[in-house]
């Protein structure tokens, strides 16, 4: 089963996403900020990371760079809100593979994840 690491500081968003993903057969782990994401990435080696951008402690952009340092092959999809175009662009340049724009549409999340991990 593909493992997805869900990174978002909003418990509400995590809960919603986790529900969708587990229902669709993914194993979900959660982190509430970039720092935690980096730590969890090392521990569980997820197949894909869904990374929020604006978070306390460590933001998504820094976390992408950190994770890429640990694993250059890491597959990270940025979860962003409208208006964060520049940050998303930076994240893509830093090695993120794709992005999803909030509010999430379930089909979009699923198709994106499917594209990377099947």
């Amino acid at each position: 089963m593909a493992k997805v690491l869900l990174v978002d500081d909003a418990a509400f968003m995590r809960m919603r996403c986790a529900k969708l993903l587990t229902e669709n057969g993914y194993a979900v782990d959660e982190a509430e900020n970039g720092q935690e994401a980096v730590e969890k990435y090392q521990k569980i080696k997820p197949d894909l990371v869904l990374m929020d951008i604006t978070m306390p402690v460590m933001d998504g952009l820094t976390a992408v760079a950190e994770i890429k340092k640990i694993d250059p092959e890491a597959k990270i999809v940025m979860c962003s809100a409208l208006g964060q175009q520049n940050t998303v662009m930076s994240a893509i340049k830093a090695g993120a593979k794709d992005f999803i724009v909030k509010p999430y549409q379930p089909e979009k999340i699923l198709s994106t994840i499917k594209r990377f991990v099947g």
Partner: peptide
């Protein structure tokens, strides 16, 4: 893509 089993698990959910 790698083919992986896809049995749903609510473990992560329950923990939270």
């Amino acid at each position: 893509s790698e083919v992986k089993s896809s049995t749903a698990s609510n473990k992560a959910n329950n923990k939270k």
